[in-house]
Design a protein around this nucleic acid. Structure first.
Lengths: 124, 124
DNA sequence: CGTATTATTGCAACAGAGTCGCAATAAAGA
DNA sequence: TCTTTATTGCGACTCTGTTGCAATAATACG
């Protein structure tokens, strides 16, 4: 099942590229210059995620946020850093420092999710 | 508005005490020895959370998990550690090491949420 | 102990996130 | 240009979490 380059996926991708921060489905939907069905956005983003094109983070509000992979090695996707979500302006940004988690013997990590929320310098 | 000691809240609390891991609403509901309304469970847990009695963590599945506060200083609740959720058996446990997050100048943290998921030693 | 006050419950209805099946549409390759 | 099939749109659905309101049951107080 090769991937096709559609209008929706192209638009969504460039929206993410233009964004300076991670975006929720809703934010993306509103930022799009064309109308795209809700379900399609979900599907496109999931596809991007499967293909390792974007990161997916879960906020303490339980919502998903997506951001383009930057400086991600093709084979090493364990790019484990925290994200910061401002409770006021809603912006979600990357905290650059990488985090090293050590698990108990025999444990296998598959997914890392770190999010701190609060108020950014502009909203504090 | 003082808190009352009701049958529901008592049961929920002792269920959490008996648990060796963080529990979702659903898990708690099923573990309860008496029937308690869904909404009530949510309200009780939110109350516990407000009172600083329990921690609330969000999984990469977007769901809330609750765990009793242990070794939490009365005034210092910034007990920032990761949790590990096994995708197979569903258990959610604390990773003891504390995490230090340093934010950019002027940023204010209010909420920390760290979760790693994968497979525990029994399920790997 | 009985009574009044009001925190808490149960129920039902709701909101929002995310998913899925299916028929219609539109990329891509021949 | 035609064919194949990945992708879309629509609708319906699941699940988590919340809320309004009347009924219930803790607590305090006489």
């Amino acid at each position: 099942m090769p991937r096709r380059k559609t209008q929706s996926s192209t638009e969504i991708l460039s929206t993410l590229k233009a964004a300076e921060s991670a975006m929720s489905h809703r934010m993306i939907e509103e930022a799009l210059s064309i109308e795209v069905d809700r379900a399609t956005i979900y599907r496109v983003l999931n596809r991007f995620y499967e293909d390792g094109l974007v990161h997916r983070v879960i906020g303490e509000n339980g919502k998903q946020y997506f951001a383009l992979c930057e400086n991600c090695e093709e084979n090493d996707h364990s790019h484990d850093h925290f994200h910061f979500r401002c409770k006021n302006c809603g912006k979600v940004e990357c905290l650059t420092r990488e985090i090293q988690i050590k698990l108990p013997e025999g444990y296998m990590a598959e997914n890392f999710n770190g999010m701190v929320s609060g108020y950014c310098s502009g909203c504090a």
